[in-house]
Design a protein around this nucleic acid. Sequence first.
DNA 1: ACCTGAACACCGTTCAAGT
DNA 2: ACCTGAACACCGTTCAAGT
Lengths: 235, 235
Amino acid sequence: MVFVSNLPEPPWSSHVARRPARAPLTREGITAAALAIVDAEGLDALSMRRLAEQLGCGPSALYGHVSGKDELLHMLIDHVAGEVEVPDPDPERWQEQLKDVMRATRNVFVAHRDLAGASIANIPTGPNVVRVVDRLLALLLAGGLSRQVAAYAADLLPQFVTASAYEWSRFEQRMEHEPEYFERLHAYYEALPADRFPVVADLLVELMAPDEEDDARFEFGLDVIVRGLAALAEP
Amino acid sequence: MVFVSNLPEPPWSSHVARRPARAPLTREGITAAALAIVDAEGLDALSMRRLAEQLGCGPSALYGHVSGKDELLHMLIDHVAGEVEVPDPDPERWQEQLKDVMRATRNVFVAHRDLAGASIANIPTGPNVVRVVDRLLALLLAGGLSRQVAAYAADLLPQFVTASAYEWSRFEQRMEHEPEYFERLHAYYEALPADRFPVVADLLVELMAPDEEDDARFEFGLDVIVRGLAALAEP
DNA sequence: ACCTGAACACCGTTCAAGT
DNA sequence: ACCTGAACACCGTTCAAGT
């Protein structure tokens, strides 16, 4: 099959009727290519023009399948939301289940670099995202939370994962292309005048505690929020 | 004084030595002009070129005073952090004090449109921001939190305010230039198939509960986080 | 129906040159 | 020392025209 392209043009082939050998654009193909760019280079590298280049078409061709960059980002978020699994609620251990869902969501986000940035301050509307919210609400109700508390928590929890995943990935990205960033930051805080910022100076070690692979700050926030929700669940 | 500019050129004045009548650029002036743009039109409207236009200079002139757009945004964040007041800690009522600081920070952010977006995923370094962190840490220690818990909380709390303020301002901005946005969102959620998303369908009213001026979702998250922290404060 | 080409109105940043 | 002019390498989006 590969050799065919090296043959001379058959005399009956019309030059006029030739179309590009590339497969026609689809929303799925566009989503996959966009995600590949984000995975390889991060959210900032994703532009309509770069995406078109990757797909071998002109930038304007994309607008036949996607209304604009906003919609493209929504499609990416919904696509990766499909990777998040939410278990059937078990009222006995809803807190651990809740934490596991949050961890799973965080891991899906950080697996796609700083994609979480596209999810900040965007109200979820895609089917996969709504599916996750639905299962999350079921879990919260199983935990004994009131209807309104569960509804508010379904905003707070995704806000927390999204912000945490975004911060983590941004820090990772910074360290990638400037490995001495953490050291510079540490040196800056160490050089702060202790008379003007006494508590910062006193807690320097604790403030600079490095996040390990499991993200201690994320686990802390998760613990605080779940404890707070549990306090509201008690009758 | 004003009439002087209407006089003919004095014969001894050199055309060569004339400089533009505009005041020379300063970091303070640049910060003020940038903030004015954000206040008037939002963070997306702030560009180095637009800012230069506002100041009556070429874009490249800015780079003599500011290393780039990143630093400019840091300067804006630190500038508004100066508007946040943090009281001296009173161990008896540290939880209410903490909430008040968070509310004050939120209000400062939303007073400057979606400026909070510039604070997301950026580690604080400016003097005013560090000052707020210092006072915040003092408050948390006064509440009986351990050193490491206080340090983690000093990350979690600003993350929460920033994300909340950003979401609020973005929603407000969307409603501003598309007043039917909330209705469209409501209609979308109402049209979701109840068999696929049973809990979302069941909690539709609670999920769509509108945020009033005081931002009920923010108050909820604040309550959850402070309860969680208080649970960790107990010995 | 789907795509191309070209254009419009923007970006952040650099750098030689001017005063 | 401070700023201008011009350029470089990009953006998102539109729209007439082509096949």
